[in-house]
Amino acid sequence: MSNPQPLKVGITGGIGSGKTTVARIFNILGVPIYYADDRAKWLMGNDPKLKEEIIAAFGKESFLENGELNRTYLAKEVFSDEKKTKKINGLVHPAVGRDFFDWFAKQDSPYILKEAALLFETGSYQQLDKIINVSAPLKIRISRVLMRDPHRTEKQVNDIIDKQLPDEEKNSKADYVVKNAENKLLIPQVLSIHKSLLDLASGQSEG
């Protein structure tokens, strides 16, 4: 009898929530993780089909002479124009979706994690079995980002937060919530979710 497919679990959280830190704890527990936001950056510079689509939509200036993505040009083009933001997302998200399923087909584990900032906003959460949202108070999130990215201003961080779904909404849509505040220990929360997902996966394989 062939092994059942791993459960597909999404892990998300707004900027500064600490979702990458939480994902790393799962990784230490042996859970394979697909980092969607990192792969998106990689695919924009390396996936031939996506590169062609970006050039068709935003012009040859989208890439430097050495073939690398011209991030400065694209950021200027896209960031303040909602139509263009939607356009580039409409190219990048399907490419990430294809790449994720190629990666997923090679995994052999009770469950895997797909880490992405915009799981709910892009609708890609619908392709997953369970969702974990990493939640943190707004003040803490802003101070974390300003410490991590000293080049950003508070206004820029707030602009990014405004483009993401509010925490309360993400928490209500998620199957599990990790509270990443100063008075909450992360590891016990992660271990509890890990056990729950392993139980779920073993129940699925017995079913």
Rank of each mutant, 00 (worst) to 15 (best):
K60L: 11
Y34R: 05
P32A: 14
N46Y: 06
K49A: 12
V31F: 08
P32Q: 10
K49Y: 08
L50N: 03
A57C: 07
Y34A: 09
G59H: 05
K60D: 04
I28H: 10
E65G: 01
N27V: 08
N27K: 10
L29Y: 12
I54C: 06
E65L: 11
I54S: 02
N27R: 06
A40W: 07
P48E: 14
V31R: 02
A40S: 12
I33W: 07
E52R: 11
I28Y: 05
E52L: 14
N46F: 08
K60R: 09
K60H: 03
K51L: 11
F58R: 01
K41A: 13
A40C: 08
S62C: 04
E65S: 12
F58M: 06
E52S: 14
F63Y: 15
M44P: 00
I33A: 13
R39S: 04
K60T: 04
K51S: 07
Y34W: 13
M44Q: 12
F26A: 10
A56C: 01
G45W: 03
K41R: 15
A56G: 01
P48N: 09
I28M: 13
S62E: 01
I25A: 13
I55V: 15
N66Y: 01
L43P: 01
V31N: 05
Y34T: 04
A56F: 02
P48L: 13
E53A: 15
D47H: 13
W42A: 06
L64F: 00
Y34Q: 05
F26P: 02
Y35F: 15
I33T: 14
N27I: 06
K51H: 02
E61P: 00
L64M: 11
I55L: 13
I28L: 15
F63W: 00
A36I: 07
E52H: 09
G30R: 05
E61Q: 10
F26M: 09
F58Y: 07
D38E: 15
I25M: 13
K41L: 10
L29N: 04
I25F: 12
F63I: 03
G45A: 12
F26Q: 03
F58K: 01
